[in-house]
Amino acid sequence: TETRTFTDEREARRFEQEARDNGKDVQVRESNGKFEVRVK
C-alpha cells in the first residue's frame, strides 16, 4: 500500500486516475484540506 498526500485536489485526482488506469485499488480521503490517496 502506498499513500500520497496532496494539497492540490487536481493533483490528487490526476494521481488517482493514473492509478485506476493501471488497475490499482484506490481510496481518496480528504481531511483538513489535504487529500490522502491510498493505492493498493
Score class of each variant (00 low, 15 high):
residue 26 V to Y: 02
residue 39 V to E: 04
residue 40 K to H: 13
residue 25 D to C: 14
residue 14 R to L: 12
residue 11 E to I: 03
residue 39 V to K: 01
residue 15 F to G: 01
residue 9 E to W: 09
residue 18 E to S: 09
residue 29 R to I: 15
residue 5 T to P: 03
residue 17 Q to F: 05
residue 26 V to M: 02
residue 29 R to L: 14
residue 25 D to M: 10
residue 5 T to Y: 15
residue 33 G to F: 01
residue 6 F to L: 00
residue 32 N to S: 07
residue 22 N to E: 12
residue 18 E to T: 09
residue 33 G to M: 02
residue 25 D to T: 11
residue 8 D to S: 10
residue 30 E to K: 10
residue 10 R to Y: 11
residue 32 N to F: 07
residue 36 E to I: 15
residue 19 A to I: 04
residue 26 V to F: 02
residue 24 K to V: 07
residue 28 V to H: 02
residue 35 F to Q: 01
residue 34 K to H: 10
residue 36 E to H: 10
residue 24 K to W: 15
residue 31 S to I: 15
residue 2 E to L: 12
residue 35 F to D: 01
residue 38 R to Q: 13
residue 40 K to R: 12
residue 13 R to Y: 07
residue 18 E to L: 11
residue 25 D to A: 09
residue 18 E to F: 10
residue 13 R to E: 04
residue 19 A to F: 04
residue 28 V to P: 00
residue 9 E to L: 09
residue 5 T to M: 09
residue 9 E to I: 10
residue 10 R to N: 12
residue 16 E to K: 00
residue 27 Q to Y: 14
residue 22 N to L: 14
residue 21 D to I: 10
residue 14 R to E: 11
residue 1 T to M: 12
residue 40 K to A: 12
residue 31 S to M: 14
residue 21 D to A: 14
residue 17 Q to C: 10
residue 13 R to H: 07
residue 10 R to T: 13
residue 18 E to Y: 10
residue 28 V to F: 15
residue 5 T to A: 07
residue 13 R to W: 06
residue 24 K to Q: 10
residue 30 E to V: 13
residue 37 V to E: 02
residue 27 Q to K: 07
residue 15 F to S: 02
residue 5 T to R: 05
residue 32 N to G: 09
residue 23 G to R: 03
residue 34 K to N: 09
residue 15 F to N: 02
residue 14 R to A: 14
residue 30 E to Y: 15
residue 26 V to S: 02
residue 20 R to N: 04
residue 12 A to R: 01
residue 37 V to D: 02
residue 24 K to P: 01
residue 11 E to Y: 03
residue 29 R to H: 12
residue 8 D to E: 07
residue 40 K to V: 13
residue 7 T to R: 07
residue 13 R to M: 08
residue 39 V to D: 03
residue 23 G to Y: 06
residue 9 E to G: 05
residue 30 E to R: 08
residue 11 E to N: 05
residue 27 Q to E: 15
residue 24 K to G: 07
residue 37 V to Q: 01
residue 29 R to T: 14
residue 19 A to H: 05
residue 29 R to E: 09
residue 20 R to M: 07
residue 3 T to Y: 12
residue 11 E to P: 02
residue 17 Q to N: 08
residue 33 G to E: 03
residue 3 T to F: 12
residue 4 R to H: 14
residue 16 E to N: 00
residue 14 R to Y: 07
residue 7 T to S: 11
residue 34 K to W: 11
residue 22 N to T: 09
residue 36 E to P: 01
residue 5 T to D: 05
residue 29 R to K: 11
residue 6 F to N: 00
residue 13 R to V: 05
residue 1 T to V: 13
residue 5 T to Q: 08
residue 39 V to I: 11
residue 21 D to W: 08
residue 15 F to L: 03
residue 29 R to S: 12
residue 11 E to W: 03
residue 1 T to N: 10
residue 5 T to K: 05
residue 14 R to I: 11
residue 19 A to P: 00
residue 1 T to D: 14
residue 34 K to Y: 13
residue 21 D to E: 12
residue 17 Q to S: 08
residue 25 D to H: 11
residue 27 Q to M: 12
residue 39 V to F: 07
residue 17 Q to I: 06
residue 40 K to C: 15
residue 2 E to D: 09
residue 7 T to N: 10
residue 22 N to F: 08
residue 21 D to N: 13
residue 16 E to Q: 06
residue 6 F to R: 00
residue 21 D to G: 09
residue 16 E to G: 05
residue 24 K to M: 14
residue 14 R to T: 08
residue 8 D to P: 00
residue 7 T to K: 07
residue 1 T to A: 10
residue 28 V to D: 01
residue 2 E to W: 13
residue 23 G to E: 03
residue 9 E to P: 07
residue 30 E to W: 13
residue 4 R to T: 08
residue 12 A to T: 01
residue 16 E to T: 05
residue 40 K to L: 14
residue 40 K to W: 15
residue 14 R to F: 07
residue 16 E to S: 08
residue 9 E to R: 05
residue 28 V to E: 01
residue 17 Q to M: 09
residue 21 D to H: 09
residue 15 F to Y: 12
residue 35 F to R: 01
residue 22 N to V: 09
residue 3 T to D: 05
residue 24 K to H: 13
residue 18 E to D: 09
residue 1 T to E: 13
residue 12 A to M: 07
residue 35 F to P: 00
residue 39 V to Q: 03
residue 19 A to W: 06
residue 32 N to R: 05
residue 18 E to G: 05
residue 25 D to P: 05
residue 2 E to F: 13
residue 40 K to N: 14
